[in-house]
Design a protein around this nucleic acid. Structure first.
Length: 469
RNA sequence: GCCGCGUUCGUCUAGCGGUUAGGACGCCGCCCUCUCAAGGCGGAGAUCACGAGUUCAAAUCUCGUACGCGGUACCA
């Protein structure tokens, strides 16, 4: 295939939704797979709803996801001349025409159609206005919109995902290209830009599928070949409704804030509507680039499963370099502990967390001493009689040389053997003393990281506490 | 209403005329074990939405129905 040119064209009317992120990802993968060009275009023609800071947020999210663009970002708001020129050309060649109906008149027509039980379609009555009259009325300052003269012929949308669908002649009405205030509309700017940018493949959500015939008609009018379309199935929430904030998180930056890794989100999102064909699921961007093809995209909608994303994130948490983990953890609240302790702790806890936020939270025990203790644990391992055992353990551990997990464990096992108790009967109270809970990484490795002083202090404090109760 | 799209374990999916319908998440059990994870092993879980056709043979092809989703703007 000759090098394709694709684009991702978000509107800065909200943050980058995961659905949009997936669209961007597929476009990016396709471009990279075939040595093509990935263009970023900001569709900010809706002046009322577009916001500058949202553009920044979208760009940041793209960068965070690792989706680098080759050209742009282009802003439609800065390309008005291009649209005006194209509109003039369509008008001059008769492919578009001025329509002078006021919004009120149109409204009345809509109401009438509704009353008659049929859908409103503009009847093209302004087509008949002679060119001179049209010029004269425009020059006289009469308001008008520009409408496309949709040819009376069937329109074919060739879609790699949805198949070829043919829209019969007359399915489309002469839709508006340019508003009466001179602002070009979405369908028009999209096509003008796609032509100007030499877009060869349009990969976007199915919500745009009904627009496709309009675009095909426009490409014809602009004397350009229609690009290849690929309309993706929607991403829904777990309840089958369109994914939104209601479902927990929908914006890419929210996932970042919750401690998901970009590679995990990329990987997860890629699998929502695409698969490499074999059973593999864990893939880096590079692997996905090598495997990607439009033909393997799915048309059916998919639900966003937070559980699976969390699992996948946990997988990545386990395998990325620890230095990177340290860097990624920076934005999260971490305990006041030395770099060494933190590093050791991360090693012990990374396989036990599914998000960076969880990981950071689990590291808290390396900071302040626990003040509350698991109730069930206290009931089971906090009997007064255990206090002396815990004190003795503290002494043995403090005396261990070196203060490393092997020696620590040996010391503890020796004590357990002397007392005729199982290791667990020693380890569990100790774990409770050290962490306040009954679940943690292996005790002795944790003790090694916490250090002699902390261990002894917590063990003795705990012994005092339960002895008195 | 009209137009379009979709429908394989709870979820994500493989499958593209002949399979014991495969994998993953989640769930359950076992192993490992000082606890919890991770990991290993195993299990439950899908009359392939439903109904007609075509065919020796259909999850796979055709049509219809149901349900879901999307669109129906001088929004994107």
């Amino acid at each position: 295939m000759t090098a394709p040119r694709v684009r991702f064209a978000p509107s800065p009317t909200g943050s980058l939704h995961v659905g949009g992120a997936r669209t961007a990802l597929y476009n990016w993968l396709f471009a990279r797979r075939h040595g093509g060009t990935f263009i970023l275009r900001i569709e900010d023609t809706d002046v009322e709803r577009s916001r500058k800071e949202l553009t920044e947020q979208i760009l940041d999210a793209m960068t965070w996801l690792g989706l680098s663009w080759d050209e742009g970002p282009f802003f439609q708001s800065e390309r008005q001349d291009l649209y005006r020129e194209a509109a003039g050309r369509l008008l001059a060649t008769g492919k578009a025409y001025r329509a002078f109906e006021t919004p009120e008149e149109l409204d009345a027509m809509k109401k009438a159609a509704e009353a008659a039980g049929s859908a409103f379609r503009y009847d093209g009555r302004a087509r008949a206005i002679p060119a001179e009259e049209s010029e004269r009325r425009a020059a006289a300052g009469e308001k008008f919109v520009l409408r496309l003269r949709v040819p009376d012929e069937p329109l074919v949308v060739d879609d790699v995902v949805q198949g070829k669908t043919e829209f019969p002649a007359g399915a489309l009405d002469d839709f508006v290209l340019v508003r009466s205030d001179g602002h070009p509309l979405y369908h028009f700017t999209v096509c003008v830009d796609d032509v100007a940018m030499g877009i060869t493949h349009v990969i976007r959500g199915v919500d745009h599928l009904p627009n496709a015939p309009k675009h095909v008609a426009l490409f014809h009018a602009l004397d350009a070949p229609a690009p290849v379309f690929a309309h993706l199935g929607m991403i829904l929430g777990t309840d089958g409704k369109k994914l939104s904030k209601r479902h927990g998180a929908a914006g890419v930056e929210e996932f970042e804030a919750q401690g998901f890794l970009p590679e995990a989100l990329d990987n997860f999102l890629a699998l929502l509507g695409w698969s490499p064909g074999d059973d593999r699921e864990r893939m880096s961007l590079a692997e996905m680039v090598a495997l990607f093809s439009l033909e393997r995209l799915g048309a059916s909608p998919s639900r966003f499963d937070h559980e699976k994303l969390a699992w996948m994130n946990g997988q990545y948490l386990q395998e990325i370099p620890v230095e990177r983990l340290v860097a990624l953890l920076k934005p999260f609240p971490l305990p006041a502990a030395s770099e060494d302790v933190l590093l050791g702790a991360i090693h012990l806890h990374r396989s036990r967390a599914r998000t960076l936020a969880e990981l950071a939270r689990s590291l808290a025990i390396y900071g302040a001493d626990p003040v509350t203790f698991d109730e069930a644990g206290l009931k089971k391992f906090g009997k007064p009689g255990t206090a002396s055992l815990v004190r003795e353990l503290a002494g043995r551990l403090s005396a261990a040389v070196p203060f490393a997990h092997a020696a620590l464990e040996e010391a503890a096992r020796a004590l357990a053997a002397e007392k005729g108790v199982k290791l667990g009967e020693l380890a569990q109270p100790a774990r409770l003393a050290l962490t306040g809970v009954l679940a943690s990484p292996p005790l002795f490795e944790m003790i090694e990281v916490m250090g002699r002083e902390t261990t002894e202090r917590r063990l003795l404090a705990f012994a005092d506490r339960i002895a008195g109760s």
